[in-house]
Design a protein around this nucleic acid. Structure first.
Length: 986
RNA sequence: CGGCGGGUAGCUUAACGGUUAGAGCGGGCGCCUUAUAAGCGCUUGAUCCGGGUUCAACUCCCGGCCUGCCGACCA
């Protein structure tokens, strides 16, 4: 083209003289392929270490990673969690902190134990036959297999972290630290031995988790048993009048063997009870019923008839109301070793749907039973009536050694003699009212299919309500700390998280920390056989810690007790506890061995932080938030965090839980492969993540659209800023045209919005402000208006230089603000413009000069845009009427009633704003047939066709008489630009 | 069943006891062909249901429906 004769006045193709956007930055992102390449590049330049090095002197902000469980491929919930964490870490880093991120894994616990057990079984070995050390080794290997796999999946999400120095709860160091932490708790005096009924399989001699239990049909005996009333704890409120003489409270149960364990009877205050007297019994029976005329029975009114029929009574009458409050009964076996009182306790779990309305309560053999008993009497008085094999102990006098279930032979798992002997004894003492059989759903082991029992077992607890530190209890300290911590108020402005954790800590029972399992950290304690006290000795503790640090938790089992005890104590005098710790205790200790004490951080970037944050799903109020809080309050008297941020869960597009059976699972790996992970990151950033996060095709498509818009905006900026340099820059000031003053003002506003939103973890607020700015302010207005100047003005034009200077500032901020959310695209954009720079992620958010605040420009342009919208509306009508196509074909006549607005419009090039080839401004209301918008009164528009000829370069219509010599087919402005262009290439 | 949340256009969301419930995306209809698998304009479309408080309710209260999380050997 440059070879074309320059004196050819007309017909010259001016296209090459335009400054159209020009950039190698592709419109199509190709995220799925490019993201892995970028990750590789970051790994090669050691971005993580560059970040640490660069921020070494900055204030430290601690982000402590809650460890996911090292089992299975990551799912979308992991992705949401890790991506939100990444947003926090990156925004903090770019806001000027040193925000280190050490990822971790939770390794102990049942799920892995199950898997490993299954592997052994497949290899033909039962768990009981596998030596503990070998079993634990297999568990460790199992976890070790998953960690690198999950790590790679997390990396693929674009998470910036110290992936080479992650923590695990099963490292020898961690296991030793966890044990040491527990010993610290022991020193507070909060650890005690109590008991609790658990699901127990006598056949397998083990406790079971709820998930190991399945329910199956079983036929059980049912018995109605009389408990004679012997007195009252309080005389108030009873309506028996003449007293308790001769009345029996009747209970019903399907487990006769639990009668020796009975310690109470539960009733409901909302059920009507009465005292019923038997008048006659059924005749002609093949046996003699146990019920006799004259028997006085307390029963729920609604169930009295059922009971009487079961007992074969023929006639009865209701004597009086019966109120259970304060009533005390005798155990049916009173005088035979069961001489305690059996109180009636008021409980909400009691119903009158079946039975008698009174519930047999054996606190060692049922969950409800245990709860109601401990509510009234604590751990006192709960007997251990059944041993590990399901045999009665000496605490069931008269029944010692009897089996509940058969433990061997063909009838393994069938009823043993216990039920029958107990029933015979009840008959013998005259306490049995009736009996029968019932087919019902009953818990069984999912492994052996044998029936289960609830069995009271000794367990270790951490006391919530025992004063220990400055006279305060663990519950009080935790509640005090809850007041200090921000539970998301900063983000949401509500008290939901605070209320939730507070309610849980207020209500929770003592912390049950012992488990009868294999894969975990032991309770490294010795119990005195003489008095049951816990051995507390610094030297012993030190030996335990050293051994575990060198050999892991295995050292506890592999080492002879005497080695730990040293010379001071005799192993024979102590019981070495074999239980393992609740895995929640493990993860509750991560603050201790990952972040460390303020005075002994595990790494420099954790020293003296200005704040510490935990961010997890809201289910962790029950889990990690709570266990970390309690552990740290017990050992350090303070919460391990200053802020807790929570998120909801990922559900499908209809708001339903994602599950395999519903087939509505979105896999992050698949998203990365098909859409690119930035699409997912954008989706998460645009959601109110405190609520549930919906995932589905429509939402992904929308996120893709948003991505396109952002990418195209960045691409346009790159194209428009080609070869922009400091020499061209126009500083902010009075010289700046109104539009650029306005644009900088908008950046100033956005800067505040974005910073504050990031500061309060409201990524959605920041992102929507950015996206709206790109759509509404930049694309649909500023860029559209300034395109003419950008493409057609001479490079020396102040207008064009001001425009490019302002766009340069836009570029600087957009790339920074988007970097935490779209780390790949931000990097691609930044390095496209500055290929010699290292990384956009080493930047901080650019400071925005206070001088950019320009309320006048802000309001003025807002007014101009209102007037503009009347014109564009009018143009649309003209277009429909085929008067014009392109806006440049029009020259609207605009009547403005408001003098101030008219002056504003006259002060600028309103035609440029409307992208028309001219505009005629007139004062006044205008003719009645002019176009108006009701929301913008006082502005009227009539569209007229632009006169003149179409400029061959800028396509604006102009008066050819004004053309410069030699350039008859383009406007004077274009002629100057072409001259400049030609001169530059002469 | 109990505890704690959520329910605003097709989607992501804003709003406040008080104009006509705001925006972006999408959809529809056009324009442009100088951001072109782009850009511009116009347009469509919503407070889960039923009561109550109030001059006024998406907002506060009660009840229902749907839905999510939690509910001691699951993490």
């Amino acid at each position: 083209m440059a070879d074309e004769p320059k004196d050819a006045p007309a017909g010259r193709d001016y296209r090459e003289t335009l400054f159209l956007p020009d950039t190698p930055f592709p419109m199509k992102a190709g995220l799925a392929q490019r993201e892995p390449e970028r990750l590789k590049h970051w790994a090669e330049i050691g971005l993580y270490h560059l970040l640490r090095k660069q921020a070494a002197d900055r204030p430290k902000f601690v982000f402590h990673d809650g460890p996911p469980y090292a089992n299975g491929a990551i799912h979308i919930g992991h992705a949401e969690n890790k991506i939100l964490k990444d947003f926090v870490v990156r925004t903090k880093q770019m806001a000027g902190y040193d925000c280190d991120y050490v990822p971790g894994w939770d390794c102990h616990g049942l799920p892995i134990e199950w898997k490993v057990e299954e592997d052994f079984r497949k290899a033909g070995r039962k768990k009981a036959e596998v030596p503990a050390v070998e079993f634990r080794k297999a568990c460790r290997e199992y976890a070790d297999k998953w960690i690198p796999l999950q790590r790679e999946e997390f990396k693929r999400l674009g998470i910036e972290a110290d992936w080479d120095h992650y923590y695990t709860t099963m490292s020898y160091e961690a296991e030793a630290a966890i044990a040491a932490e527990f010993l610290r708790v022991v020193r507070t005096g909060l650890v005690y031995r109590g008991s609790k009924p658990v699901m127990w399989s006598p056949v397998e001699r083990t406790s079971l988790a709820e998930a190991e239990v399945e329910y199956a049909e079983k036929t059980s005996p049912t018995i109605w048993v009389k408990f004679p009333v012997v007195g009252f704890q309080s005389v108030s409120g009873n309506t028996l009048g003449e007293g308790p003489a001769g009345v029996s409270v009747v209970i019903w149960t399907t487990t006769p063997w639990t009668i020796p364990g009975n310690r109470a009877i539960s009733f409901s205050p909302s059920i009507q009870y009465g005292v019923y007297e038997v008048e006659s019994i059924e005749q002609g029976l093949a046996f003699e019923p146990w019920v006799k005329p004259g028997d006085k029975l307390a029963l729920a009114d609604k169930l009295a008839e059922d009971v009487m029929r079961a007992a074969k009574a023929a006639a009865w009458k209701r004597l009086d109301d019966f109120d259970g409050h304060g009533v005390v009964c005798a155990h049916p076996f009173r005088g035979r070793g069961y001489d305690f009182d059996v109180p009636l306790l008021s409980g909400d779990h009691v119903t009158d749907d079946a039975g008698t309305g009174f519930v047999h309560t054996a606190p060692g053999h049922g969950a409800d039973d245990f709860v109601i008993w401990t509510k009234h009497f604590g751990q006192e008085g709960i007997p251990f009536t059944v041993d590990a094999e399901g045999r009665f102990t000496k605490e069931a006098p008269g029944f010692e050694g009897l089996e509940i279930l058969q433990l061997e032979g063909k009838n393994l798992g069938k009823d043993g003699p216990a039920n029958k002997v107990v029933m015979d004894k009840l008959i013998e003492v005259g306490a049995l009212l009736a009996r029968g059989q019932l087919k019902h759903s009953y818990p069984h082991s999912w492994r052996s299919k044998a029936p289960l029992i609830f069995r009271n077992t000794p367990q270790w607890f951490i006391a919530m309500d025992k004063p220990f530190r400055d006279g305060k209890t663990l519950r009080q300290i935790a509640l005090d700390e809850i007041e200090r911590v921000d539970w998301g108020q900063k983000r949401t402005g509500d008290q939901v998280g605070y209320n939730r954790i507070k309610g849980m800590i207020e209500d929770r029972p003592d912390w049950l920390v012992s488990r009868q399992r294999a894969w975990g950290v032991p309770l490294p304690i010795f119990v005195s056989k003489a008095d049951g006290s816990l051995l507390q000795d610094d030297d012993v503790d030190a030996r335990i810690y050293a051994a575990m640090k060198a050999g892991g938790a295995d050292a506890w089992w592999a080492t002879d007790a005497q080695v730990f005890l040293g010379n001071k104590y005799k192993a024979a005098d102590y019981e070495k506890v074999e239980d393992i710790l609740d895995v929640w205790f493990d993860s509750g200790c991560t603050h201790a061995f990952v972040v460390g004490n303020p005075d002994a951080p595990t790494r420099p970037s954790f020293a003296n932080p200005v704040g510490t944050i935990y961010l997890e799903g809201s289910d962790q109020h029950r889990g990690w938030f709570q266990s970390s809080l309690l552990e740290s309050c017990a050992t350090r008297g303070r919460a391990p965090y200053d802020e807790v941020v929570t998120h909801g869960f990922t559900v499908d597009e209809n708001g339903m839980k994602q599950s395999k059976s519903l087939g509505n699972i979105v896999e992050p790996q698949k998203v990365a492969k098909e859409n690119g992970i930035e699409i997912l990151r954008l989706l998460i950033a645009s959601a109110e993540y405190g609520d549930d996060l919906r995932m589905g095709k429509i939402i992904m498509d929308q996120s893709t659209e948003t991505y396109r818009k952002l990418r195209n905006t960045l691409r346009y900026l790159l194209g428009a800023l080609k070869d922009f340099g400091d020499g061209e820059r126009v500083a902010a000031g009075k010289d700046l045209p109104l539009l650029e003053r306005w644009l900088l003002h908008r950046l100033w506003e956005l800067d505040r919005t974005v910073r504050q939103a990031y500061e309060t973890y409201q990524f959605r607020v920041a992102l929507s402000a950015i996206v709206e700015f790109c759509n509404v302010d930049l694309s649909a207005f500023y860029v559209d208006v300034r395109k003419d100047a950008l493409y057609c003005d001479a490079p020396s034009s102040l207008r064009r230089r001001a425009c490019r200077s302002a766009l340069d500032q836009v570029f600087s901020r957009l790339t920074a603000w988007l970097a935490p959310i779209l780390p790949f695209t931000a990097e691609e954009t930044w390095l496209t413009r500055f290929p010699d720079d290292v990384s956009v992620h080493l930047r901080t958010f650019p400071e925005t000069p206070a001088a950019w605040e320009d309320d006048f420009a802000g309001e003025e342009v807002a007014r101009l845009r209102e007037a503009r919208s009347v014109v564009t509306g009018a143009l649309e009508v003209a277009r429909r009427e085929k008067l014009i196509g392109s806006a440049l074909e029009a020259r609207p006549r605009v009547w403005v009633a408001d003098e101030g607005l008219l002056a504003s419009l006259q002060a600028i090039d309103f035609a440029e704003l409307c992208i028309t080839s001219g505009v005629d401004l007139e004062a006044g209301e205008g003719p009645s047939d002019a176009f108006r918008l009701s929301e913008t009164p006082g502005v009227a528009v009539k569209v007229e066709k632009a006169p003149g000829v179409k400029c061959a370069r800028s396509w604006k219509y102009f008066d050819p008489a004004t053309a410069l010599p030699g350039f008859p087919d383009i406007t004077p402005r274009d002629a100057l630009a072409v001259q400049e262009w030609d001169a530059a290439r002469a």
